[in-house]
Every structure is written in C-alpha cells, then in structure tokens.
C-alpha cells in the first residue's frame, strides 16, 4: 500500500465513520436481534425465551394476520396501478405546455407535503357519511346518496385507495421530468409517419418513460405495503370497521406495542420484508421485458 492509498483509506474511513458506526448500531445489531426475537417469546420487559418456529407457525393460524395480509394485498393491487395511471395522465396533460403549467403542478404537488396526520383527519371529515363534503357534493350534483365510505366495511378500502390518489403529486413531478427527457425529434418523425396523439403516446412516449414507470412502481409498492399512519389516525388504531382497514403495518404495530408480543411481531416484520423483497424482485425481473433504456 502506497502512502497515498493509506492516506485515502484513513480519510475515507474517517469521513464514512458516522455511517459505519450508525450501520453497526442502528442497522446490523437490530437486524440480528430482530431475527433472533422472531424465534422467541419476547415482551421487552422479560428476557426473550427461545420457541423455535412457533411464531411463524402461529402466523398462518392467526385469522387477524390473514385478514391484515388480505387487506394489504387488496389495497396494494388496486391503489398502486391506479395511482400510477392517474399520475401519468396528469403528467401528460401538464406536458402539453399549457399556460399556467407551473401553477397546476404546484396544485397537484401541495397535498404531498401536508403532514399525514392532518390529511388523515381532513379526509375523515371529507368522507363522513352525514355532513361530509363528498356525500354532500354527490347529493348536490348527482342526486346520489353516497355510501358510508370509511365507516362501511365494503367501502373502507376503496376510500383509502381514493384518498391515496390525492397524493400522487410526487409521482407527477417525477413523470414530468421523465417526459422532458423524451427527444423532440422522435415526435417529429412520428408526425411525418402520420401518427395521431394516441399512436404517439403508445409508440413514443410510453416506451421512453418506462424507466420512470419502473421507479414509481417500485416506490409505490414499497409504500403501499407499509401504509400505516393514515389508517392509524382514521380508525384510532383499531382497523375498524370489522377489521376492514386492519393493514399489515397496523396489525404489526398493535401486536408489538399494544399486545407486547414483540417476538411474534418480529416474525411478522421479517415476513413483510420477504413479501416486499419478492414483489420488488418480481417487478425488476419482469422489467427486462417492458422497460426500455435510452440508447438500447
């Protein structure tokens, strides 16, 4: 090792030391312990007791767990593609170089910066069956008596999905940046070929923004699986009505901090990691078939 190399190593480690230390303390150690706890009976106060695979076996006999898993998959499967399509739609409209584009962009982005607790309380009020804004407007303009939304087990998950559409602003901004990277010449070529707006979207725009779609899809999936604060606030931590909004992260929180079944909750956490990891890998593998990178 030359003097230069040694100097770089010392400096590099020194500069990276906050992260290396933090990684050991706040990541590696907790990871190992969490894995260990998932095979234990543990309530934080007493020492953990080794029980082998019992926690994992119990998960599949626990009807609340199956409900939570189902609710989360339902939410993810509908919310992620719907939000993605909605944000692409808005970004495409904004990309038409209309006047006041930056004002529209600001309006779409604003809901994403509202503290989640505030927006959850606000939507609880908007979705209140009697006196709430949404049902009031439905009656005023369409003469429809709206459903109970978040208070009705059949409508509570659609309510969350609807509510989630309000916060697509981040994805819209990212899609806008992606759209700006599409070379103008390609549209000119498409014009010469006589392509209409749909043809241009289908054959030029869509293939070229697939990397951005992939990014937003993965981010959306990860966020959906961990969706927590909104349901906690809106149902006061219960997942009501009839456990219809008991999502995975909420059940995990209740298991650990209400029932103090920390070992069981650790097993749930690792399973969640596995599910997210599997979903991400699946998307990444499939992306080889549908994502086009520039210059390929």
């Amino acid at each position: 090792m030359t003097r230069m190399e040694r100097r770089n190593l010392v400096n590099g480690l020194l500069f990276a030391s906050p992260y290396i230390l933090g990684f050991l303390l706040f990541m590696l150690y907790p990871l190992a312990m969490s894995f260990y706890y998932s095979f234990c009976q543990y309530n934080v106060i007493a020492k953990p007791i080794w029980i082998g695979w019992d926690n994992y076996h119990e998960l599949f006999r626990d009807s609340d767990f199956t409900t939570a898993l189902y609710n989360t998959l339902y939410f993810t499967v509908f919310s992620v593609p719907l939000s993605l399509a909605f944000s692409i739609g808005l970004a495409l409209l904004l990309n038409q170089k209309v006047n006041g584009m930056s004002i529209y962009r600001t309006i779409f982005f604003l809901p994403t910066i509202v503290p989640v607790v505030a927006s959850a309380v606000l939507w609880l009020w908007v979705l209140t069956p009697d006196g709430g804004l949404l049902n009031g407007l439905l009656l005023q303009f369409f003469g429809i008596r709206g459903p109970g939304w978040i208070a009705d087990p059949a409508w509570s998950k659609p309510s969350l999905i609807l509510m989630n559409l309000w916060t697509v602003g981040t994805a819209v901004v990212i899609f806008l940046a992606g759209l700006a990277e599409v070379p103008k010449e390609l549209y000119e070529v498409a014009d010469i070929d006589g392509a209409g707006p749909w043809g241009k979207f289908r054959n030029v725009t869509l293939p070229l923004i697939t990397p951005t779609i992939l990014f937003n899809l993965v981010m959306g999936l990860i966020a959906a699986f961990q969706y927590f604060t909104q349901v906690y606030v809106m149902t006061n931590g219960t997942g009501s009505p009839a456990k219809s909004t008991l999502l995975y992260a909420l059940y995990l929180y209740k298991t650990s901090f209400n029932y103090l079944k920390m070992g069981y909750a650790s097993a749930m956490a690792w399973l969640l990691f596995l599910v997210i990891f599997a979903a991400t890998v699946l998307v990444m593998v499939s992306s080889k078939r549908w994502v086009h990178y520039h210059g390929e």
């Binding site: 990860i222 699986f225 650790s266 956490a269 969640l272 990691f273």
Partner: peptide, 18 residues
C-alpha cells in the same frame, strides 16, 4: 439498507432505547 422496511428494526431499536 434502503430496501429494508423500518418494521424490521423497530422492535430491537425500541428495546435498545428502553
């Protein structure tokens, strides 16, 4: 580590801070 959901480290961190 950016890929790991916060739920995984939540409980041991709580135990440590406690």
């Amino acid at each position: 580590t950016m890929m790991i959901p916060y739920q995984v480290t939540l409980i041991p961190l709580f135990a440590v801070y406690r």
